[in-house]
Design a protein around this nucleic acid. Structure first.
Lengths: 132, 132
DNA sequence: CTGTATCCTGTTCGATACTG
DNA sequence: CAGTATCGAACAGGATACAG
């Protein structure tokens, strides 16, 4: 059997797997959560609605661009709602939806594991880097 | 009060926040998990040890470079162990550590939420995109 | 078999400036 | 106040070739 066939089969498998991943719900969720700021926004909104500028102040490290972009993404996914109050100056509030709140236990699970075990991870890293 | 002072204060806050984030265990964990392949590797190893080529076959979409890179990262974090058997040809097995296994419930929590709610997210996306 | 090294492409993201 | 638009540097990540 020629090599070309085997390599073609591999490419085919890769293609199918990538198509599968594109549809895989877990991967899609992970893609959203992996955004650097998404979890921080969710956590900030867990205590109640906040205005744009409140978020910008609480999550001090984020750029305007990324904050807006992440908020849009979360809004699009139905995890939060954006309420514009047409006053002068305009006022925009962000609030978790029920769907967004249902995600919080997952975020908290991540947080709890991190706070419980991250020192072990850091120790492992130090040991690994030490050995060189 | 001159504007420069306010802007300097903002920069200072941003700097401090970024320093805080760099130390925040949750952020560090999220940074690891957000790697495209890490969760897939963890899931693949949840059922037992696998060889490099087994992983490459199961996670068909990954490039050699990223697979190796992700495995090294997980090894460094103490989540899996890499065992080299010096035969010809050489054989390398990867296996979750206790620490790695302790992370699995978190990964599963993400998976369960995704499988339960991702259709709502997709519906929200469709609605959002439809409105334009 | 299990990688490492290199090149090269697309994407991400911060900074900056501008708008309703 | 709450964004939008644009530019450029930095990085991620795939393809390919090579090595122990």
């Amino acid at each position: 059997m020629p090599t070309t066939t085997a390599s073609r089969r591999r490419e085919q498998a890769k293609f199918e797997y990538n198509a599968f991943l594109a549809l895989c719900p877990t991967r899609q969720l992970l893609d959203s959560l992996s955004d650097k700021w998404v979890c921080l926004i969710l956590a900030a909104l867990a205590d109640g609605p906040l205005r744009y500028s409140d978020l910008a102040r609480q999550i001090a490290g984020v750029s305007q661009k990324m904050l807006t972009q992440s908020l849009r993404s979360l809004e699009r996914d139905g995890l939060l709602i954006r309420t514009v109050t047409a006053s002068v100056p305009v006022r925009v509030d962000y609030e978790l939806t029920a769907l967004g709140e249902s995600l919080m236990p997952v975020v908290r699970a991540v947080k709890i594991w991190a706070e419980t075990h991250m020192d072990e991870v850091l120790a492992a890293r130090a040991a690994y880097d030490g050995e060189g």
